[in-house]
């Protein structure tokens, strides 16, 4: 059974149909690529699935439940976490605080436990702190761990996006152009690390414009154009598809 199954998802803005009946399925335990020309509706799809934008119609089945129209925090706690194409965050919070914030099941987030300072809260905090350090090291952010997010470069902000999503130990992570603006060496390394995620029980759906990156990581690859899924298959099959080429070149212009 697919981990994520989207049926006939629709969403319009100001009369412009941005999602025009999206149908797609993501099987558990892999890295699925989502590609398509600028404005195809990829980010909008992430916005709707993650609950930031309610759908006009359609269903989103995640892990056996229809989450269409759920609040973003409920979707997130259910195990579906997304990152942002244009990095967003909490300007005055440090890298460490960003990572810690995404940790799941924190007893210290209950007002009462925060005030009395329970053992459970302390233990969980220590556990998460260890994970946060490991994540920061992996993303080469450990030397910046006490820096506020405003003090990070564009690429480092993107890295922090990935890091904090992983801290949530999600079942499915939606990465929106995770390595845009990241230098090639680190991009390669991140690619390597992303390949490990399915083994840790994390399924990945990622948007990317870098075709080399997609070719190396993703199977299958889903192609979106003009608010619909155009086709799906292995990278080579998709690349050979003339409709995909047309979509990228601009069918309407031709």
């Amino acid at each position: 059974m697919p981990l994520l199954e989207i049926r006939n998802l629709r969403r319009a803005f100001y009369g412009l149909d941005v999602l025009r009946g999206v149908d797609l399925a993501v099987e558990p335990g892999g890295i699925t690529g989502l590609i398509g020309p600028n404005g195809a509706g990829k980010t909008t799809l992430f916005n709707v699935v993650s609950g930031l934008v309610p759908p006009d119609a359609g269903s989103i089945r995640f892990d056996g439940q229809d989450i269409a129209g759920w609040a973003p925090d409920a979707v997130s706690r259910r195990g579906l976490v997304r990152t942002f194409q244009v990095a967003r965050g909490f300007p005055k919070l440090s890298v460490f605080q960003h990572l810690m914030l995404y940790g799941r099941d924190q007893p210290g987030e209950s007002l009462w436990q925060a005030i009395v300072g329970t053992r459970a809260a302390r233990d969980r905090e220590a556990e998460l702190a260890e994970q946060a350090w490991a994540t920061a090291r992996f993303l080469r952010l450990d030397h910046l761990i006490d820096n506020p997010a405003t003090a990070l470069s564009g690429g480092q902000k993107k890295l922090l996006e990935i890091g904090r999503a992983l801290m949530a130990a999600p079942r499915l992570v939606l990465l929106d152009e995770p390595t845009a603006g990241v230098n090639p060496t680190l991009q390669n390394e991140i690619g390597e690390r992303l390949l490990e995620l399915p083994r840790r029980g994390i399924t990945v759906l990622l948007i990317e414009h870098d075709m080399g990156f997609i070719a190396r990581l993703c199977d299958p690859v889903i192609v979106m154009a003009e608010g619909q899924v155009l086709t799906e298959g292995t990278f080579d099959a998709v690349r050979a598809d003339h409709r995909v080429r047309e979509a990228y070149l601009g069918r309407r212009a031709a």
């Binding site: 930031l52 609040a71 925090d73 997130s76 605080q97 810690m100 995404y102 436990q113 925060a114 905090e125």
Partner: peptide, 30 residues
């Protein structure tokens, strides 16, 4: 009491909400 809150995961979540409530929701915070 308020200093404990300030230094706890609860205070961290509050700060995140102050900075960007939508991203705090994406982080799973009610």
């Amino acid at each position: 009491v308020v200093r404990r809150i300030d230094r706890s995961p609860y205070g961290r979540a509050l700060r995140a909400i102050r900075e960007d409530a939508q991203v705090a929701q994406v982080a799973g915070k009610p």
